[in-house]
Design a protein around this nucleic acid. Structure first.
Length: 422
RNA sequence: GUGGAUGUAGCUCAGUUGGUUAGAGUACCAGAUUGUGGCUCUGGGGGUCGUGGGUUCAAAUCCCAUCAUCCACCCCA
């Protein structure tokens, strides 16, 4: 049987890779403008990091991790997300002793064992940012501003930003109890999944899509009405800052993020029309995370964007124009016995900073011209017996069809001048 | 993990109630133009019909299994 890319993985071929470069460029440039620096962490970590960092009860840890043992029987896991690794690096290098906040961005592959569908892969890519060491609501706003700036930079203005606050451990625990009390009398009416959620993580009943569940718990107490004073004030300032700066969002009582580490601000960005997996990004504040994986008490906030979903949206909404990669000069060789000289000339052109290419399959002169055309060559250099004898080359402008005989010595300056004048 | 749809050339797809050598468009290569591109014309290569079993005189076609893709659920990016 022919070997294919494993389930849920795929190749990014050159044509597609151009789009990735374009997208990464926007992301990195925007993050830099906001004062975020790149960090690169390993793609695998000790399994324990994710168990503690992401949360034992999450779907990611319970059923989606690529976990394996290396030859020394260490349990390692391909990273399912980026925040845990960043936090580990922060602690490992004691960076919390330095200037705060620390503002990082990263981009790279993540791995989750899940059933593939449009916009969902087993190896997928995220761009994310993390800011450690400040609880300021203005930092929350900055992170959201950065997120929106990236979307707009990609020409994606049709997004929906959902916002909520999941409170701090203190007020959330009180709220949790209140919610359980509210649901207790009607728990039999909940769907199967929600029966389990009711016991393990009652907040997640709120974002169940079953209409019957929503009806059963109608008039439920909301998170926002049960925040403590500090959390309420914090959330209010985040919202106000966004409003003051014209960033549209909707407060969403049902938004409860799946990862255990979130506190206070939680958010999700959706782009309608790219399939069922419409969440292109999500994030929030995680003030307890650093401590929970062995560091000092240090607050943090971040988000992650799904890169293939963003490209899906870009393709769907068709708002990019990307130039085809072309070559400045194509070298057409008219006699086989001139290959040595052709190779030297080609190398020389490239050393002089020109993009140049030639045929390697003994094509006829005509076929070489066709190839030059296909590669988008601006100029073709013809090299044949006449040229060699006369110490010159023939240069053809592919657009105007003009041709000149140029001295060997004058060739490079001539080409540079031609290209500069285009 | 659950349910549904679909797998024929690199790509997009035809292929009749099971019947002889599986087709088209496009892409690729060559020639017309032996040293000159886009257009046109002519020719050519390329398929174990996803894979493995079964039914049949005969299977791309019917049955089973398996793998993969897509859609939805779950969940998330």
């Amino acid at each position: 049987m022919q070997i294919k890319a494993p389930r849920g993985t795929y190749d990014i071929l050159p044509e597609e890779a151009v789009k990735w470069q374009w997208m990464e460029q926007i992301m990195k440039e925007t993050a830099a403008r906001f004062g975020y620096q790149e960090i690169r962490t390993p793609v695998f970590e000790h399994t324990e990091l994710f168990q503690r960092g992401v949360g034992e009860s999450t779907d990611i840890v319970t059923k989606e991790m690529y976990t394996f043992h290396d030859k020394s029987q260490r349990s390692l896991t391909l990273r399912p997300e980026g925040t845990a690794s960043c936090t580990r690096a922060l602690i490992e290098h004691s960076l919390y002793n330095g200037t705060l906040p620390i503002k990082w961005f990263y981009a790279g592959p993540m791995f989750r064992y899940d059933r593939p569908q449009t916009g969902r892969y087993r190896q997928f890519h995220q761009f994310g940012v993390e800011a450690f060491g400040s609880r300021s609501p203005f930092l929350d706003a900055e992170v959201l501003f950065l997120l929106v700036e990236i979307l707009q930079g990609m020409g994606l203005s049709e997004y929906e930003l959902h916002l909520n606050s999941v409170g701090c451990p203190l007020c959330r625990e009180q709220y949790r109890q209140k919610l359980i009390d509210h649901m207790a009398p009607v728990k039999d009416k909940l769907c199967k999944d929600c029966q389990v959620r009711y016991l393990q993580n009652p907040l997640r009943v709120l974002d169940c899509k079953e209409a019957t569940c929503h009806q059963a718990i109608i008039n439920y107490p909301t998170l926002i009405d049960n925040l403590c004073d500090d959390c309420r004030t914090h959330y209010g300032m985040v919202q106000q800052t966004l409003k003051d700066n014209g960033i549209e969002f909707v407060h969403d009582n049902n938004l409860v993020r799946g990862l255990d580490y979130y506190t206070n601000t939680a958010f999700e960005v959706h782009i309608p029309g790219i399939g069922a997996q419409s969440a292109v990004g999500g994030g929030g504040r995680y003030d307890g995370l650093v401590e929970s994986i062995g560091g000092p008490s240090l607050p943090g906030i971040g988000f992650a964007l799904g890169m293939e979903r963003l490209l899906l949206a870009v393709d769907k909404l068709g708002c990019v124009s990307r130039a085809q990669q072309t070559v400045d000069v194509f070298l057409a060789v008219m006699q086989e016995n001139l290959e040595n000289q052709a190779a030297s000339l080609l190398y020389k052109l490239r050393q002089q900073g020109l993009s140049a290419d030639k045929d390697y399959n003994q094509r006829s002169g005509r076929a070489q011209m066709k190839l030059a055309d296909k590669l988008g060559a601006k100029y073709v250099i013809l090299l044949g017996e006449d040229e060699i004898k006369g110490n010159f080359v023939t240069v053809r402008d592919m657009k105007s069809k003009e041709q000149w005989k140029i001295d060997n010595e004058g060739l490079i300056p001539f080409l540079h001048e031609c290209l500069d004048n285009r």
